[in-house]
Nucleic acid binder design. Structure first.
Lengths: 195, 195
DNA sequence: ACCTGAACACCGTTCAAGT
DNA sequence: ACCTGAACACCGTTCAAGT
């Protein structure tokens, strides 16, 4: 019935979504109430209706990230037809590759660095890493490695995950894909790269 | 001749040193003029005698880091008696391990995250990574791998470097050392961890 | 040559008041 | 139920003035 311009009325999710965009683009410290309010078309005072303060917003971001990472492992588990090696590749591509959730692909490293200085972020990262570790180790055990060997290789896989997210490389997309493929083959015990 | 209390008079290096402490402890965005001035016992106004502005201080930090990383590669090259595998372990330990320069050990990841949002930091990180890559690849080539295989393994080694710097693990120091040892053995082509 | 002190702009937080 | 607007504290930057 109303003919007036749509008044901007927000819910906490809208603030969290906007906050994650800022986080991914420019780090935790760019997640500021006033610029965020401007982006959302409201005054900064209204933020405090939805959240107690800035730390409460940051906690909500972490909760959303943890949820998403857990979902991801569940989704991969759903690929009943995929081999352990294919699941590893899926995990890599869904975390840092082309199939990664764009909302979080760039947020991953921002969150990881944030965790160096904020105990709340440390807890979230530790939880996600621990879940990933168990998952990845199980893959390698599924490939026939001993528990010790699986832990070693899982550590290297997680390193690869981080390196792909973090390192700036002068490399074409094809070269990257090929190199990642050889890396996974190496970790999985095949040695196609030796030739 | 003067009997007065030592007046606090600083040079640019003193500001850079204090800035790196803040960077390592709490990230780039904690490198703020006013708190830094307080730590150094002067007023913030005096900062602008030594530096044009905050970006100029940040640029000086990056220059110092690049210098240090280059020095590190040179120092390792000086270990004429060390095998390629031992050099890799040295690089790892001097970058993230117990032998790392304490001024920069914690700054490493802070700088890397910083590079996601600041082009000047991107340039510095890219330069350091490129130099490290060449160096590490040469180690693997020295171990008898083809260029392609060396590049693959160098990528995994850099990942390991990042993982050790970044990941929060529930692991004793002994377990960590053993796992890192097995990781290096695996990358170097030995397979002691299979047993 | 280096530092102080006062000034102004920007963001976090609060809160009384609006709709 | 959600938003505005004004208020106050903190940090970046400038600059005239001190020693």
């Amino acid at each position: 019935m109303s003919a007036e311009a749509p008044r901007t009325r927000l819910d906490p999710d809208a603030w969290i979504g906007g906050a994650i965009e800022l986080l991914a683009a420019r780090g935790v410290n760019a997640v500021k109430i006033e610029p965020l309010a401007r982006r959302l078309g409201v005054t900064k005072g209204s933020f405090y209706w939805h959240f107690k303060d800035r730390p409460a917003l940051l906690a909500a971001i972490l909760a959303r990230w943890e949820e998403r990472q857990t979902d991801l492992l569940v989704r991969i588990a759903g690929h009943a037809d995929a081999s352990p090696a294919e699941r590893l590749r899926l995990l890599l591509e869904m975390t840092v590759g082309a199939y990664a959730d764009p909302e979080f692909r760039n947020a991953e490293i921002a969150i990881r660095n944030w965790s160096r200085t904020d105990p709340a972020a440390t807890v979230a990262v530790r939880a996600v890493d621990a879940r990933r570790s168990v998952y990845i180790e199980d893959f390698f055990i599924g490939l026939g490695f001993t528990e010790t060997a699986a832990r070693t290789r899982a550590g290297l896989f997680q390193g690869l995950l981080l390196a792909e997210a973090l390192l700036v490389r002068d490399e074409t997309a094809e070269d990257r894909t090929a190199r990642v493929g050889r890396s996974l083959d190496l970790l999985a015990g095949r040695h196609r790269d030796e030739g």
